[in-house]
């Protein structure tokens, strides 16, 4: 009935429905009639429903009329308006992020000298959750990555009889690039999202407000332990990832490419410099701060209930992986140019 009525009204023809034969109606029926009425109004035509009796009449009498303002309210703002509000949101978000950065620096670096320490034990607990619990998955991914790289490299290098350079390729790219990057991406997915969800849930449950009313600064109590923990765990995870990745390459080289174990190890050691290691580890610390701060930022700025927690979690993972890759390209560009 709704479809037929819609077709007539869309052609801007007036419509009258006779309800005399209708014996019963529910709120869905009333909704359909109201929908037709709104459609008629939008198309400058008229829609009437007459001769309602008994229960149908009673139902329609108790249903409030649809609001006339509804049609106007559903239209979206112009492109520029949406662009403006979107831009404003990004700006507000960036300001809040810088504020969080400054607060974290204060409570992490300066406040301890004024005898305001983060809660005892919290940093260790976070380090175990972010670092130790992440060992299996980081290890597995790095191992597979080492295997893949060795295979891919061997496929090309074989043509030149330069199989031994698989060691250089696997070693240098793991230590400089893939070790820090892969472990950061895994930790962003594992722990960045967990931080955002945990803090977000605390905001929703008024736990952050409760902390504030107890005179406990939430940055010192919640953010600083997480940032401290990840600052130690991320380089450690990266070192571990490097080692496991190189081991993966080593296995392929020895078992599949028939290189001697001693030669491979020797080649890896001579290919790597201390500079490579320092570059990789400093990257990993920057990535760590990105993960922890973006997670905290998204969690603490949550709006809405359970749905907001979901949104904050997604945003934190997407934003931190994006920023990690941006930071990585900045690092790579700088180290190439300088």
């Amino acid at each position: 009935m709704l479809r037929t009525a819609g077709k007539i009204l869309r052609q801007r023809r007036p419509l009258v429905v006779d309800l005399a034969q209708v014996t019963a109606a529910d709120s869905m029926g009333a909704g359909a009639l109201a929908e037709c009425h709104i459609l008629a109004r939008q198309r400058d035509t008229s829609f009437r429903a007459v001769n309602a009796t008994g229960q149908v009449r009673q139902l329609l009498d108790q249903t409030p009329a649809p609001l006339a303002a509804r049609a106007a309210a559903t239209t979206r703002g112009s492109m520029f308006e949406r662009l403006g509000t979107g831009g404003d949101r990004v700006l507000q978000g960036s300001i809040a992020f810088l504020q969080l950065l400054a607060d974290t620096a204060y409570w992490g670096l300066i406040a301890p000298f004024r005898r305001r320490f983060p809660p005892p034990g919290a940093t260790t607990a976070q380090a175990l959750r972010i670092g130790a619990d992440g060992l299996p998955i980081v290890g597995l991914i790095s191992f597979l990555l080492g295997l893949i790289m060795a295979f891919q490299a061997a496929y090309q290098l074989r043509q030149f009889g330069a199989n031994i350079f698989v060691a250089n390729l696997v070693g240098v790219s793991m230590v400089r690039e893939l070790g820090p990057l892969m472990s950061a991406i895994v930790v962003a997915g594992r722990s960045g999202s967990a931080i955002a969800a945990e803090l977000g849930t605390m905001v929703v449950g008024e736990e952050i407000d409760a902390l504030r009313t107890m005179g406990v600064n939430e940055i010192r109590f919640l953010v600083v332990p997480r940032v401290f923990a990840i600052t130690f765990t991320q380089p450690s995870l990266t070192l571990y990832s490097n080692a496991v990745g190189i081991f993966g390459g080593f296995l392929i080289a020895v078992l599949y490419l028939d290189l001697s174990a001693a030669a491979y190890i020797q080649q890896t050691i001579s290919a790597l410099s201390l500079n490579d290691l320092i570059t990789g580890l400093s990257k990993s610390i920057v990535f760590a701060w990105i993960i922890a701060l973006i997670g905290c930022h998204c969690g603490l700025r949550i709006t809405g209930g359970a749905e907001g927690v979901g949104r904050a979690t997604t945003t934190s993972v997407v934003a931190s992986i994006f920023l990690i890759i941006v930071a990585d390209s900045v690092f790579t560009t700088l180290s190439t140019v300088l």
Binding site: A30, L33, A34, H37, S46, F47, R48, A49, V50, A52, R57, L60, D61, Q62, T63, P64, A65, P66
Partner: peptide
């Protein structure tokens, strides 16, 4: 509970 006109009134009145 109800503020404003009912659905019935606007469906019948409009001519």
């Amino acid at each position: 509970n109800q503020a404003g006109p009912s659905l019935l009134s606007i469906l019948e009145e409009e001519a």
